[in-house]
Amino acid sequence: MLITAACSSDSGDSQDKGGAGAQQTPSGTTSKQPSASASPTVQAAAYRKLPEPCHVLAKNTLSDLVPKGASSGKEGTSDDTATRSSCSWSSLDNNGVKGSQFRWLNVSLLRFDSDADRGAADKQAHAYFTQQVGDAQSVSGAKNTKAQPVAGTGTEATLVRYDLKKKEGAFKQQTIVARVENVVVTLDYNGAGLAGEKTPSSDDLSKAAQKAVKEVVAAVTAANGQGSGGSSSTKPSTSPSKQGSKTASKSPSAAASKSASAEASPSKSAAKKS
């Protein structure tokens, strides 16, 4: 009788020690049931870095767009050049009593990372792309505003062109916003004839701007180990984003003056720093 009672007592202790959530293993030890499923993940970003902003355009291209300022590229300030960068050039071709031809060019680059809270990087980039196009179409004082898609340029691209009258002259503004996967490129290009010079052709400026933005898109893909185009076969990034969808370096905005150092940017296509 004493032996039977002892065996019954040991069996009860084993059941209590295992607990309701434990399962018996072959060695006699217990292990807990698997926990709940892991947190949901988002698709990783296609591109992990940006090219140097003042080297995204070929020398010949710069000579066409800003003939007197091809070597005057000025890089914008940024606390994180891997996600946000820009460069601007200005040109003033003085023709004496006939006046001057002014040109201003700015390229801004913004890269998004995938984030569990904000979502996939390309989705964030698309939202910012849409915002930039809307900003370019709503510039105060703009006349004859037109928007059109730009074929063969990244994942999506739109050209916004308009006229802007300033005290120095009539400016022809071209803003192209292009998205290549999780990177958004904003190219601002404007020109004006000052002090009696004729106003430049908006069509000519548009063609030059479209050629330039294709080079910038190609530079983005090349910086991530690819050729020109916009495919996303690079290794994805897993680092979380530190900025919201409104992060970007602000393009400078100034009117052309009668001096050779003038710069102008009537576009509103800049976003807030995160």
Rank of each mutant, 00 (worst) to 15 (best):
S265A: 13
G141Q: 07
K74C: 02
S245L: 07
S35N: 10
T155D: 10
L194D: 03
Y128S: 15
A136S: 12
N144W: 05
S269C: 09
S267V: 04
F129A: 07
V42A: 02
A147V: 11
V56M: 02
D64P: 00
N106F: 03
R84I: 07
E215R: 01
R161N: 13
A260H: 11
L159M: 06
Q124A: 11
V220M: 04
G193H: 04
A264C: 06
V217W: 02
Q124E: 13
L187R: 00
D203L: 11
S90V: 05
F102A: 15
S241W: 01
D79S: 12
G227D: 11
H55R: 13
T238E: 09
R111Q: 07
L92V: 14
V217H: 05
K167H: 04
A5Y: 05
N144P: 01
P51Q: 07
S232Y: 03
A270D: 10
A44W: 01
P67D: 05
K143S: 08
A222K: 15
K172D: 02
K123I: 10
S90W: 11
Y128N: 12
G141P: 04
S265W: 03
Q43S: 11
S267H: 02
A45R: 03
S100R: 09
W89R: 00
P53F: 10
D10H: 10
D10A: 12
T153H: 01
S108Y: 02
N190Q: 08
K272V: 15
S257G: 15
D79I: 06
G152S: 04
D80V: 01
L50G: 03
Q101E: 10
G244E: 09
A44I: 06
S108K: 07
Q24R: 15
S86G: 01
L194N: 06
A70Q: 14
P149V: 00
P34N: 03
S265M: 01
S9M: 04
G96C: 05
A20V: 11
A262S: 15
E168Y: 06
A270L: 02
K146F: 02
R103T: 02
S202K: 10
C54R: 02
G69E: 04
A209N: 06
D163E: 12
G12L: 12
G229M: 07
A116T: 12
R161A: 14
P200A: 01
Y189G: 00
Q15N: 12
S11E: 11
G193Y: 08
A46R: 03
V217A: 03
L194A: 03
